[in-house]
Amino acid sequence: MKNSLKTIKENNSNFYKVFMIMIFLGLSIAAFVVGNIYGSMDISIKSILGILKCPNNLDPQWLVIWNVRIPRTIVGILVGINLSISGAILQGVMRNPLADPGIIGISSGAGLTGIIILILFPQYQYLVPPVAFLGAMIAAIMVYILAWKNGIQPMRVVLAGVAVSAVLGAGISALMVFFSERVHGAIMFMNGGLSAKSWPQVYMILPYTIVGIILAFLMAERLNILVLGDDAARGLGINVEFVRFELVVIAAMLAASAVSVVGLLSFVGLVIPHTVRLILGSNYKYLIPGSAFLGAAIVVFCDTLGRTIFAPIEIPVGIIMALLGAPFFLYLLRRQR
């Protein structure tokens, strides 16, 4: 009888989690639709469907929808997925709800190397994703080394990440000062924006998103074990340091690919996974898809808000996310004390 009740409770719990993931998926679809409707030129759903059914290269609305809004919203979705999954992985690896690619320095590492390419070697922009990944990995290793002392402690990770971010941020600022005549192309990169993003950026980030999602799902069970603690994980036959390194590589790849396309977009990897964890719990089989869908929805909704609230002036999505994420970060930091 007890076993039957337990099974029923587990089934109800799993149904609830799947239902909420479907809600997050619905929000991401709604964000995609809203992002294509609203902007400097509002276009109805009926008109959008008509444009897609009967393409006309001479129609201004077709040009706006196909060359601007659809690829821009797709980039926003992919960036939200990448940063959210990256943050969820890092929070599990570090066992710290305050960890995210921006706060612990991974985004700054990717940003510095990306800025170096954009400012010093603009002719090699196609190298930004792999170089940003290298910078992200170096930053992650620096944080890991600085935070290690008889194991990983959550607060040491945050403090080490803040220190590494400050140093790397100083490097970015120095480059912008010394090469001020070339800084125009880096301004949007610094603030995290989706302006002027089109199909080339979709093709740039999409492979990293696909590979990252697959690897994250394959590692979900090991991540669940790792969250239990190093001793428990070793007792279950997990090579803790090797698995942790694998997960950091996946998180760095996802974060670096997002940063290489939109720049330094903070707080997505912090706010989204923690919100999803409060709703769905800490099982990464549900946390990863939940974070991906909700992250996609939030980034696209924030970008649409930034495009429309003061139209025709556009506010980068990074500023909107910072306004939402900073209070949430302070709330989490207060809870940790």
Rank of each mutant, 00 (worst) to 15 (best):
L168I: 14
G114L: 01
V34D: 01
F121L: 15
G318C: 07
M176I: 09
I320Q: 01
N3W: 08
A326Q: 03
I21H: 04
F293N: 03
L63I: 15
G185V: 11
F301D: 09
A30Q: 01
W199V: 01
N150W: 00
Y208A: 09
K285G: 08
T308M: 09
I77L: 14
L49T: 09
Q153C: 00
D230P: 01
A30D: 02
G105T: 06
V177Y: 14
S28Y: 02
N150Y: 08
G35N: 04
I23R: 01
L63Q: 15
L333W: 07
I8L: 13
V276L: 05
A296F: 04
H274Y: 11
I214Q: 07
R72M: 13
T275R: 05
N56W: 10
L333C: 06
L323R: 07
V202I: 11
L118H: 06
Y124A: 15
A88K: 01
F310P: 04
S108H: 14
P71G: 06
S198V: 00
T73L: 03
V202W: 10
G135K: 04
L83R: 07
F189C: 02
T113K: 00
P154M: 09
G161L: 05
A232F: 14
F189L: 06
R244S: 12
H184F: 14
G193V: 05
I116C: 11
M22C: 13
Y38K: 14
W66D: 00
D100A: 10
N36F: 09
I309W: 02
Y203T: 12
G87M: 02
T209W: 06
I74S: 03
N239E: 15
P101E: 09
R307H: 11
S40A: 15
I141C: 04
A186S: 13
Y124N: 13
S40I: 12
A140Q: 03
I43L: 08
I319S: 02
A232P: 00
L264P: 00
G212K: 04
F32H: 03
T113Y: 10
K6D: 12
I45C: 11
K46P: 00
Y203K: 14
V262K: 05
